[in-house]
Design a protein around this nucleic acid. Sequence first.
DNA 1: CGAGTGCCCTGACAGC
DNA 2: TGCTGTCAGGGCACTC
Length: 283
Amino acid sequence: MPELPEVETVRRELEPWLTGRTVLSARRVAAPAGPKYANLARAAGQRVEAVGRRGKFLLLALSGGDELVIHLGMTGVLTPERPRDHVRIELRLDGPPPNVLYFRDPRRFGRFLVVPAGDYRSLPTLAALGPEPFDAAFTAGSLLAALRGRRVAIKTLLLAQRPVAGLGNIYIDEALWRAGIHPKLPAGRVTRAQAARLHDAAISVLRAAIDAQGTTFSDYRTVNGAVGDYLGYLDVYGHAGDPCRRCGTKLRRIVLGARGTCFCPQCQPYARKTAEMRTKRRT
DNA sequence: CGAGTGCCCTGACAGC
DNA sequence: TGCTGTCAGGGCACTC
């Protein structure tokens, strides 16, 4: 499931390939008409001026004032190699091969559409996206402010992309474990100290995952077809029943907002931590 | 507006 | 072997 590290990995591979090339055509292949694949015809004739990213969204700036927005959803893959099946979009470019970009997306949770640059009315999550985790605008203070007064579980709020952009199910579990925060803790009850730890944890886990080119469970591949290597570094996600790498307690799995959620009941207590436990965790 | 629910969609897998 | 049921979840429409 592509989150920020996976999307950033893809972005870095697309950038040298696509930048400066002109779109010859963009067409739907085995994809229904609809808002997920809107306005593709408008891309033709426009040059790709930049390959950017906001949260989990890829944003290709086009020379005609439009923007190509791509979200990989759960199973989306961008590749120059024609996939055997489930091709949703075929983007033809000028210049030497490889000059066709295929969007393969078996489960069709992804999007691939053209909008006027910055016009995200059809993409409410992107329109209201929180700060980039590596941006100076994302601070412990901004995080705390985004949580204040909210009764919803901290994990649920993070999934909504508002406090910070780019975290999904996997890296939220990892960041909350690193920060020692129970995923069900009402967001408004996160303390200043916890928010500071969560801020640092989000940045550090995303950095580490980018360095590993992301996490591959099943579908995710880089543009070059490689898998992400972060799977082996995950501390909690997918490790329910295993001993916590920090304290040895058996990791638990619960369902929160229809998402599988793994955490350590010892390191991430629902109630406020004691000073003794804070000290223990420092190691 | 905040919070909660259910839908989309298909491959993988368990169970019989 | 082949069928059926269940699970996985990001974003969003919908309801209260």
